[in-house]
């Protein structure tokens, strides 16, 4: 976007998921419950796109935002860093489209480094804030290699959703929302078989 449509940054506010989650937490728009993960240890995978590549392309990576978000879901003592981490962290092995490519043997061999890194931490949860990384670690590496204690691979937004305290909307809010919804479904010709009101 920066290369091809620089004007977009004048027209719109453009934010990453890290910026948005930090904003929600800081402003109190969402509330998180750390006790949800009591007794668990977590480690952080850093996807290439929002870290090394973002740093190279935009001069900014999201290391501190990432940790800020996780610290709002976990006690600090339960966060274990990988080695190496930050801008030197290893790729999961499925980057650059490798998850969808036919070279699966190479992709798995590549991921051995990542599996070892995760195992070393002793964590039982690994956060993968990227679709490709999460699929590689959860669906492939965890089956191919011994990842030690690690049992769960969660998207960053999945982690946040799990710790999220959800207060159901008031009747008034629900009513207003349903009216908007019905108008939209009517406009778009969306018909549900068993609608609940």
């Amino acid at each position: 976007m920066k290369t091809w449509f620089p004007e977009a940054f004048e027209e719109f506010r453009v934010v990453s998921i890290y910026d948005l989650l930090v904003e929600y937490i800081q402003s109190g728009r969402i509330k998180l419950d750390k006790s949800r993960f009591a007794g668990h240890k977590v480690t952080l995978h850093e996807p290439c796109n929002y870290f090394r590549k973002s740093a190279a392309a935009f001069g900014q990576d999201y290391s501190s935002e990432y940790r800020y978000i996780v610290k709002n879901c976990f006690e600090e003592a339960d966060i274990v860093e990988m080695y190496p981490n930050g801008l030197n962290n290893h790729c999961c092995g499925a980057g650059g489209g490798a998850w969808a490519m036919p070279y699966s043997q190479e992709r798995i061999a590549y991921g051995k480094d990542k599996a070892d890194q995760i195992k070393e931490t002793g964590a039982d949860i690994v956060v993968a804030p990227c679709h490709n990384c999460r699929d590689q670690i959860m669906k492939s590496l965890s089956k191919e290699f011994d990842m030690g204690n690690c049992k769960e691979t969660l998207y960053l937004w999945e982690l946040v959703a799990q710790a999220l305290i959800i207060e159901p909307w008031s009747e008034e809010e629900v009513k207003r929302s349903h009216a908007l919804r019905d108008a939209q479904y009517e406009r778009d010709g969306v018909e549900l078989e068993s609608e609940e009101f």
Binding site: C48, R52, K53, A55, A56, L87, N88, H90, C91, G93, A94, G95, G96, A98, M101, Y103, E106, R107, Y110
Partner: peptide, 12 residues
């Protein structure tokens, strides 16, 4: 294509 374009090489 086997290289995942992770950029660790370029960073270093």
């Amino acid at each position: 294509w086997v290289c995942t374009l992770c950029g660790r090489c370029q960073y270093a």
